[in-house]
Design a protein around this nucleic acid. Structure first.
Lengths: 231, 231
DNA sequence: TATAATGAAAAAATCGATTTTATGGCAATG
DNA sequence: CATTGCCATAAAATCGATTTTTTCATTATA
């Protein structure tokens, strides 16, 4: 069962499944590693090393790099390869501002269209998130659960392009957030907000939910700013 | 002078210039042909024919196709190649709605940040647009001028990611609009609105300008709907 | 000393051929 | 008659080698 990819991985599922090509596998792996900050910001990628590191040939690797550049997780300069984008405070502010704008819109629409089935899924996603948060040593587990929770929250908004952009911004944002020093106090507030979001969403309290999501993103934004050095 | 490409062609300029690679050239050509509707919607692309048509080898061609899929102008299914996305009314509505939302936001910010230099550029862009419109036989000329006008209008908004998404949506929207039967009456109104937009922008009348841009997009939307058949 | 030219080494991009996977017709089976 | 299995064909994906372009240390020049 292969996945239609008008966008890199529109389904949100990892292409680790059966019919995955080498290109899509290395795309997923590279994407994760970029978001997790495994490459230094601003660094130039040595294609030769990537080839050996990810155990793929040149062609699928280059195809993956091209996708990532089009997606915005890499910069491509014409005869001089690929590099990791720098982390810039002004860009983070831009990303966070747009996230607020788009996710609040999506939330409004999701509260209008979401049905009973969605409510169950949202509760389930929140439950998984809490469980994962109880074992913070499993970082990737937590991150996955967190991503899925936010996806589930906005999923029924009815606008594929809106969701696409939100996903893209989320990936960009996470590059910053994951590199920032963690703030356990803020972290607790953020966790609490997840539960409150579920309550407000189920009760269809649009404006309150919007305000809370806005605050949620803004708090995260404050933490993520710690990833930036100079400008 | 090569261009940084965190996105396909972030500068808006054609990569026909000096340091262009085969991949970026065929990317530009394919992108234009897709937007111009030279391929039937839903059609599967025969990579072999593309190779001969665009006179490039397999590797650069595949890299271009991968970029286009990540950009959303192609669909990619894992072991069965690339196809042109179908034209769907609900998707067009989605695109138009988002365009309104994002472009109005950008317009507001542009009116706040735009300086005198920008005003000159806007006047110039509008002048070129009018001149191009006088020779409607030069369709591509008109389209280019039109695109540049809208780019210039929003350019100083100060948000690279917002501009990126707007550009992407604009390309998607144009796929529909260019295939729709032209409506000369509406066309005249749209042309008039361009001039009015310039006036309102220069006078920094934010809310009036927003309302007009919204109407502008909505009118275009009505025309573009003519490109859709069934759903 | 600063600047420009040079050329070897490294990296990016591309090509041609091979391998892998899907597709569609046809026979075999229930 | 519908369904399944099999093969030949076609297409997609990948590999290995070649070509092109950049990089950078070195030398020549003003």
């Amino acid at each position: 069962m292969s996945t239609v990819m008008r966008t890199p991985d529109a389904s949100g599922a990892d292409s680790a499944s059966s019919g995955a090509t080498a290109a899509s596998r290395v795309f997923d792996a590279l994407k994760q590693d970029l978001i997790r900050g495994r490459f230094a910001a601003g660094q130039k990628l040595a294609i030769g090393s990537l080839k050996t590191h990810y155990r793929v040939g040149l062609s699928p690797l280059r195809e993956a790099l091209n996708r990532l550049a089009a997606y915005g997780l890499l910069e491509q300069v014409n005869q001089r390869g690929f590099r990791v984008p720098a982390l810039r405070l002004d860009e983070l502010d831009d990303i966070a501002d747009l996230r607020s704008q788009l996710e609040c819109k999506a939330l409004t629409q999701a509260l209008q269209h979401g049905d009973a089935e969605w409510e169950s899924q949202l509760l389930a996603a929140h439950h998984r998130l809490r469980r994962a948060d109880e074992r913070p040593q499993e970082m990737e587990e937590c991150e996955q659960a967190h991503l899925r929770f936010h996806r589930t929250l906005l999923a029924p908004c009815g606008s594929p392009w809106l969701l696409r952009f939100i996903e893209q911004l989320h990936d960009q944002f996470d590059r910053y957030r994951r590199l920032a020093p963690p703030d356990l106090e803020v972290r607790e507030v953020l966790d609490r907000q997840h539960g409150e979001l579920v309550q407000l969403a189920m009760a269809r309290r649009v404006s309150q939910a919007r305000a809370l999501l806005d605050e949620h993103i803004d708090l995260s934004h404050g933490v993520a700013r710690g990833a930036c050095s100079a400008p």
